[in-house]
Amino acid sequence: MTTTSARTAPTTRGWITAVFVAFTMSGLAIATWLGRIPSVRDSLGASTFEMGLLVLGMAVGSIGGLTFAGHIVAKVGARRGVQVAAFCLAAGIVFAGFAVTFGWGFAAIWVGLVAFGFGNGLVDVSMNVSGAAAEKAGAARSCRCSTPRSASGLSRVPGSARSPRPSRSGSSCTSRPSGS
């Protein structure tokens, strides 16, 4: 029989809360950029093709972040991976914003969006690793199955509260004993 100390429960709860917050902040950062696309297009006088190239910069960065995330997390851990990702997200979006505001040009905006995309890819992997570790550490409820859906709002789909979807391991998202 596995027992959970009084100190472990709040720590795990805080850990899970941090996972939710990180995913939410990543989603809000992307929403911030998406909301600015029309004004960026207007200030650059860019065509649809040129705007597609800017979005490609985010995709290139994201693929890079996903590719190197395993190495980064293995070397520095999930927590530091999230910190590196947060820095890349913030630096990338701020740099891209300054590049648009001060007219630094298309290439500068693209570089900022590559850094932003890299941070987004890295935060996704780091938070999933952290969520899995929190679950393994004794979370009473699986956070891996609900974290990505909650950040995007898909967990509010009608019926999702009545019939939780099983995770890839086949276990339900509902409460279950620690260590299972």
Rank of each mutant, 00 (worst) to 15 (best):
V114G: 07
V94A: 03
R41T: 10
G170Y: 09
G103K: 07
A78G: 03
F106V: 02
S43H: 05
T67P: 07
R149A: 15
A99E: 00
C145R: 15
G81C: 07
L28D: 03
A133H: 14
W15F: 11
W15L: 06
L122M: 01
A29Y: 05
T17C: 10
T2M: 11
S167V: 12
G81I: 04
G117W: 00
L66C: 07
A96V: 00
G112M: 00
T11L: 15
A29C: 10
V21Q: 14
A132F: 07
G138L: 04
S43E: 11
R79P: 00
S178C: 09
F49G: 08
S126F: 02
V157F: 12
Q83D: 10
P166C: 13
A91M: 06
S160W: 11
A134N: 05
R162E: 13
T3M: 10
V55F: 14
S47V: 07
A96E: 03
I30D: 02
P38G: 04
F20R: 12
T17A: 15
A107E: 03
M127K: 00
A46I: 02
M58P: 05
G92E: 01
W104P: 02
R79D: 03
F49Y: 09
A140S: 09
M1N: 14
V40G: 06
F102I: 01
R36F: 01
T17M: 07
I16N: 04
R79E: 08
T17N: 13
R149V: 15
E50P: 01
G138N: 00
I109C: 01
Q83K: 10
F87Y: 13
G170K: 06
F87C: 13
V82S: 09
A151K: 01
L113H: 05
R162A: 12
A85V: 05
R41Q: 15
T8E: 10
A151R: 08
T3S: 13
V114F: 06
K136S: 13
F106R: 01
G103V: 00
W15T: 03
R165S: 11
T48D: 14
L53N: 04
P164H: 10
T17G: 12
P148Y: 00
V21H: 14
S178M: 12
A86W: 03
S155D: 13
V55E: 08
V40I: 15
A78P: 02
H71E: 12
G35F: 04
M25G: 11
S163T: 14
L154R: 10
S180T: 15
F106P: 04
G81L: 00
G65V: 05
I30Q: 06
G121E: 02
S142N: 11
F68V: 01
L56Y: 00
S142P: 06
C173H: 12
F20V: 14
G45Y: 05
A137K: 01
I30N: 08
S26R: 03
R13M: 01
A115N: 04
F102P: 06
V21S: 14
S146G: 07
I109G: 05
A96S: 08
Q83G: 11
A151L: 07
R36P: 08
L34Q: 00
C145T: 15
S175T: 10
P177G: 11
I63S: 12
S130D: 14
S171I: 12
G65E: 02
H71A: 14
V76S: 09
S47D: 10
L34N: 03
V94Q: 08
M127C: 09
D42I: 06
A151I: 06
I93E: 02
G45V: 04
F87S: 15
A107W: 11
S146M: 10
S171F: 12
G64R: 07
S142Y: 03
